[in-house]
Simulated scan of single mutants.
Amino acid sequence: MEKALFSKRITCLDCKGGHIAKKQRNKRIYICGRNHNYKTCRRNKVFQDYLIELLSMRYNDIVSPEDLSSKVEYIEANEEKIVIYVIDNGKPIISMNDFAQF
Rank of each mutant, 00 (worst) to 15 (best):
I94M: 08
T40M: 14
C12Y: 08
L68H: 00
Q24W: 13
I87V: 15
I31Y: 07
V72F: 11
D98P: 00
V46D: 04
E66H: 05
E76T: 01
R34E: 11
H36K: 13
Y85R: 11
A77H: 11
F6M: 03
E2C: 11
K39D: 14
P65E: 14
S56G: 02
K91T: 15
L55P: 11
R9E: 07
K23H: 01
Y85H: 14
N78V: 04
N37Q: 06
C41D: 08
N97A: 08
D61N: 11
F6W: 09
G90R: 14
E79S: 13
Q48V: 07
Q24D: 09
S7L: 14
I52H: 06
A77G: 04
N97K: 04
N37E: 07
I52Q: 05
Y74G: 00
V63G: 14
I20D: 10
R43L: 13
K27W: 08
E2D: 14
K39T: 07
C32F: 02
F99Q: 09
F6P: 08
L5K: 02
N89Q: 15
N44C: 02
N26A: 15
Y59N: 07
Q48I: 06
L5P: 10
Q48T: 04
S56C: 10
G17L: 10
Q48K: 12
K27S: 12
P92M: 03
A4K: 08
E79V: 00
V86A: 11
Y50R: 13
M96I: 12
A77K: 02
I10A: 10
K16D: 11
